[in-house]
Every structure is written in C-alpha cells, then in structure tokens.
Lab assay of single mutants.
Amino acid sequence: LGPKYVGLWDFKSRTDEELSFRAGDVFHVARKEEQWWWATLLDEAGGAVAQGYVPHNYLAERE
C-alpha cells in the first residue's frame, strides 16, 4: 500500500468530501492533489475506517 502517514494536528472537516481526524491518527494516502490528499483513515489493526480529503500539511510520513 505504500507509506503510511500520521496526523500532526486535529482537523475538522468543512465539507462532505473532507475527513475529520485527530492528531496521531494513521492514514494511507491514495492520491496527492496539490493542497488536498485523498486518504483512508486506518484503525489500529490497519483496517479502513473512512475516506476523504485531508490537508497535506496536516500529515507527516510515518517512519
């Protein structure tokens, strides 16, 4: 699936296409579209919880 990303700060969605998340949440990014990335929010087991657009500057690649 490629690298995983972690949320740096809490983010509250403003549209139906955006995905709310908390700092520390883990994502798989499917598409990078300039300022907004289409991402899947993952649970602790790595299963998909939700999908939506997230601001790229709120995520960091997980080491």
Rank of each mutant, 00 (worst) to 15 (best):
Y53E: 00
S13H: 05
L59V: 04
R22G: 05
D10F: 09
V6P: 02
R14V: 10
F27M: 09
K32R: 09
E33W: 09
E18M: 12
R62A: 15
F11R: 07
H28A: 10
T40A: 06
G47M: 14
D16G: 11
F11L: 01
W9L: 10
W37L: 05
L42F: 06
E44K: 10
E18L: 10
D10S: 06
L8E: 03
V54Y: 03
A60F: 09
G24H: 03
L8I: 11
D16C: 11
V26S: 08
L42E: 03
A23L: 05
K32D: 04
E33R: 06
E63S: 13
A30I: 15
L19K: 00
Y58I: 04
L42P: 00
L42I: 08
W9G: 06
E18N: 07
F11W: 14
L59D: 04
P55W: 06
L19V: 05
A30S: 15
V6E: 07
Y5G: 01
G46K: 03
R31P: 02
E17G: 12
Y58L: 07
S20A: 06
W37Y: 08
G2S: 13
T40W: 11
E18S: 06
A30T: 15
Q35Y: 15
K4D: 11
A39M: 03
G52P: 01
V54C: 12
S20C: 08
A60N: 06
A48M: 11
T40V: 15
W37G: 00
D25R: 01
E44H: 10
T40Q: 07
W9S: 07
E33I: 06
K12P: 06
D25L: 05
V54S: 02
N57H: 12
G7N: 01
Q51I: 07
G52W: 06
P3C: 12
A39G: 02
K12H: 14
D25H: 03
K12F: 13
H28M: 12
T40I: 15
G52I: 05
F27L: 11
V26R: 06
Q35M: 13
S13L: 04
E34N: 12
D43P: 01
K4M: 15
R62H: 14
V26N: 07
R31Q: 07
A48Y: 10
A48K: 07
G46E: 06
F11D: 04
R62K: 14
A45Y: 14
G7S: 14
A48H: 08
L1M: 12
G2R: 12
A48I: 13
A48C: 09
E34S: 13
F21R: 00
H28D: 08
V26W: 10
R14M: 11
W36T: 04
Q35E: 14
V26H: 07
V49Y: 05
R62T: 15
P55D: 06
K32Y: 08
S20G: 06
V49S: 06
F21A: 00
A39Q: 01
N57Y: 11
V26I: 14
F21L: 02
F21P: 01
T15S: 13
R22F: 11
E18V: 13
A60D: 07
A48Q: 09
G2M: 14
Q35F: 15
K4G: 06
Q51E: 14
A45L: 12
R14S: 14
P3F: 09
E33M: 09
P55C: 09
V49C: 06
Y53R: 10
Q51R: 07
H28F: 14
N57I: 08
G47R: 15
G7V: 07
R14K: 11
A50G: 09
D25S: 07
K4Q: 13
G46V: 04
V6A: 03
D25I: 08
D16S: 12
Q35C: 15
P55Y: 06
P3V: 13
L59F: 04
L42C: 07
V54A: 01
Y53K: 11
E33G: 14
H56G: 15
H56P: 14
Y58G: 06
V6H: 05
F21Y: 01
Q51T: 14
R31S: 07
A23W: 04
E61W: 07
E33S: 09
L1P: 13
V26A: 06
A50Y: 04
W37T: 00
L1G: 12
G2C: 15
R31D: 05
Y53Q: 05
P3W: 08
K4W: 13
F27W: 03
G47W: 10
L1K: 12
F21D: 00
T15M: 07
D16H: 11
W38N: 00
F11C: 08
L41N: 01
A23P: 04
F11T: 03
A50M: 08
K12M: 14
R14N: 14
R31H: 10
G52D: 00
V49A: 07
P3G: 10
W36I: 06
L8Q: 05
E34L: 10
G47Y: 13
R22C: 12
D25A: 08
R62Q: 15
Y5N: 00
F27G: 00
R14Y: 09
S13D: 03
K32W: 04
A60I: 14
G47F: 14
P55S: 05
D16Y: 08
E61P: 14
D16E: 12
F27K: 00
A48T: 11
R31C: 11
R14E: 13
V54G: 01
E18G: 10
G2H: 13
Y5S: 00
L59N: 01
G47V: 14
A45V: 10
N57C: 15
E17S: 13
E44A: 12
R14G: 11
D43C: 02
V6G: 02
H56Y: 14
E18Y: 12
R22I: 08
Y58S: 07
F27Q: 01
A60H: 10
A60L: 10
F27R: 00
E17W: 13
G7T: 03
V29Y: 02
G47D: 13
F21N: 00
L42Q: 02
A50Q: 08
Q35L: 14
A39H: 00
T40F: 12
A39E: 01
Q35H: 15
A39W: 04
S20I: 04
W36N: 06
K4C: 15
T40R: 03
Y5V: 00
E61I: 15
H56F: 13
W38S: 00
R22L: 09
D10G: 04
L1D: 12
R14P: 06
A45N: 15
D43H: 02
A50R: 10
G2K: 12
R62V: 15
G24E: 03
G7A: 15
A30N: 15
R62D: 13
V29Q: 00
R31T: 08
T15W: 09
D10N: 07
L59C: 04
N57T: 09
E63K: 12
R14I: 10
G46P: 02
K12N: 14
Q51V: 10
D43V: 06
F11V: 03
G52S: 01
R31M: 08
